[in-house]
Amino acid sequence: MANSIRAFGTRRATLAGFLLVLLFSLAACSSQSRGGAYHFQWDITFTSIFQPNGSIINGLWLTIGISIVAQLLGVGLGIIAALGRMSRVWPFRIVANFYIWFFRGTPLIVQLTFLFYGLLISKVLVWPSIEIGPFVIAAEVFAGTLILGINEGAYMAEIVRAGILAVDPGQTEAAKSLGMNYRQTMTRIVLPQAARVIIPPLGNEFNNMIKNTSLLYVLAVFELYTTFESYSTTSFHYFEYFVACCFWYLLLTTLWAFVQGWLERRFARGTLPTPDAGGPNLRERLLGQRGPGAGGADAIGGH
């Protein structure tokens, strides 16, 4: 069994390596076909990965910070909007439905441009910069994070609603019969159980969020993408810089995968016969979950 798992991993690595070589040769060929070979300056890539300068580090922290704050905002708004959609009070339903309809129905880049430049230039809302102690959050960072969070809330609303609907109605009845009110029933009984169902899609959402921060390019927020883009335009070394750019995004999304695995185990309490068996482990997370079919196919392919 251990053998087949190793074979599984090796094969994947080989495939990835093969594709990378193919990509590089294609790039090299096409540049030569136009006459005048392109000289890859790999030191740019290596420096951007192993000795990143202040701008790159700054961009990295901005991407991380904006993603986390926007996602937290999105989860909060998502819970409120989900409860609004399921409310017995019809004005709540109308407002929640409109919110979800608008922010899921228009592109994020349109929302960013409209809500930042549109409101700013028409002076409907002059976005302020925020001072927190010694730190100043620029207006475009503040606005960008807020808009990303509001957009995210519309998607989270449906995920949270699905999670709540997945909880056995008997749980609500038991809570009510013990004298719990709506707030206690939701926060103590229903949402903690819904969380288990919400976390896998939430993992997807946050993964998207990390990447979607790159759209703040349109607001000239110098996060990871904008930083690399600006270096590329001035030096024309797109290829070298963007290999490094991919590296940083992959690092963030990979780290998140570990955090998600931990969260899944944390919220699986009481749902599995042994308390610590929940959620995929490290190997499963990297190589994909192995169903009963996968082992069989490997055994044939690997030997």
Partner: peptide, 21 residues
């Protein structure tokens, strides 16, 4: 909710909270 505090109920399907000991 206040009235229900005085009335205990036991369900056919137990309805224990699975995320609590």
């Amino acid at each position: 909710a206040r009235q229900r505090m005085e009335i205990g109920m036991v369900f056919q399907r137990f309805n224990l909270f699975p995320h609590m000991t």
